[in-house]
Computed example of a mutant assay.
Amino acid sequence: MDNSFAPGIGRRLDGWPNRDINPGAIIALSPAIDDAMKKVLNAWGAGKYDPRSNIDGLSKPVVIPPAFGLAGIHRITYTGDGEDIMYWNRYVAVSQMGGLGSVSEPRLNISITNGTEDLVTSKLPALQAYQLSLSAPPPPAGSFDPVAAVRGRLVFEGAGRCATCHSGPAFTDANSGLHPPVDSMAEPETPSYASRSATKQYRTTPLKGVWQHPPYFHDGSAATLPDVVNTYNTKQGLGLSSGDIADLAEYLKAL
């Protein structure tokens, strides 16, 4: 909600990631969970969730991603495990929410069936169609410097080397390939989130509407867009000046 009437009450913001909800704390309220696991869950923090924890017993929560701006993008998760949204919706419905139905992922040795009837599959096409209809929100008026953004685009396409992977109208090469963990600005991490996925790799995150959903990187380690640019500049040895970094951040805010 946009809180236009009161906190938590207003117009719907469809597809916007909920950065206030604390899934770990909610799950920890279950009397079926022991104290040790409650401690783990309560450490996840607001706006984060680990969709593998109940599968492999590890804990590495990731930032809840937006569900907007996915039209034309086939690999929609951080690690690009599936070829469409229905893949992930099925996984969540059955393995995370206990929905009646089945999910199978041989690459992770997952085969789960809940109940004797399938109440999940028939709902997946309509849910996917709805999600694909959600456009990324445009930046609010006055939220970026348009002159600096023009300069930042030149950095994005040139010295910053951003357009190499953040390519095309969706600013991602996810449909053509994935990237090894070493390419991620959040790696190395223990446990590696990619190592717990089916692909063992990462997709390039789409950038449309990126102004809306800090923190950034799958682990939320970059609080702001300037932090993102600084991280790339340092780890990739780009040699960008402070002015280049500021301009590039303004361009990202404009997407």
Rank of each mutant, 00 (worst) to 15 (best):
I9H: 04
R12L: 14
R12C: 11
L13P: 00
D14F: 13
W16Y: 13
N18E: 11
I21W: 13
I21P: 00
G24M: 07
A28D: 09
S30E: 03
A32W: 12
K39S: 12
N42M: 13
G45K: 02
A46R: 06
N54M: 07
K60E: 15
V62P: 01
P65H: 13
P66F: 13
A67H: 07
A67G: 11
G69K: 09
L70T: 06
A71H: 06
H74C: 04
T77K: 08
T77G: 11
T79A: 08
E83M: 03
D84Q: 07
Y87R: 00
Y87M: 00
W88I: 13
R90I: 06
Y91R: 08
Q96K: 09
Q96M: 11
G101P: 01
I110P: 04
I112N: 07
I112Y: 10
N114K: 13
N114Y: 09
D118E: 12
A126Y: 01
Q128L: 06
Q128A: 12
A129P: 02
Q131C: 10
Q131T: 14
S135R: 15
S135V: 15
P138N: 14
A141Q: 05
A141V: 08
F144R: 05
P146F: 06
V147F: 05
G152W: 05
R153H: 11
L154A: 15
V155T: 04
V155D: 00
V155M: 01
F156E: 03
G158Y: 05
G158F: 08
A159T: 03
C162K: 04
T164H: 06
S167E: 14
P169L: 09
F171Y: 14
N175P: 00
S176V: 15
L178E: 06
D183C: 09
T190L: 08
S192M: 01
A194E: 00
Q201M: 15
Y202A: 00
T205A: 13
P206M: 12
V210F: 11
V210N: 05
W211H: 12
G220S: 03
G220Q: 02
V228S: 08
T231R: 15
G237D: 03
S242L: 14
S242N: 15
S242F: 13
I245M: 08
L248Q: 02
L252T: 01
K253A: 00
L255N: 00
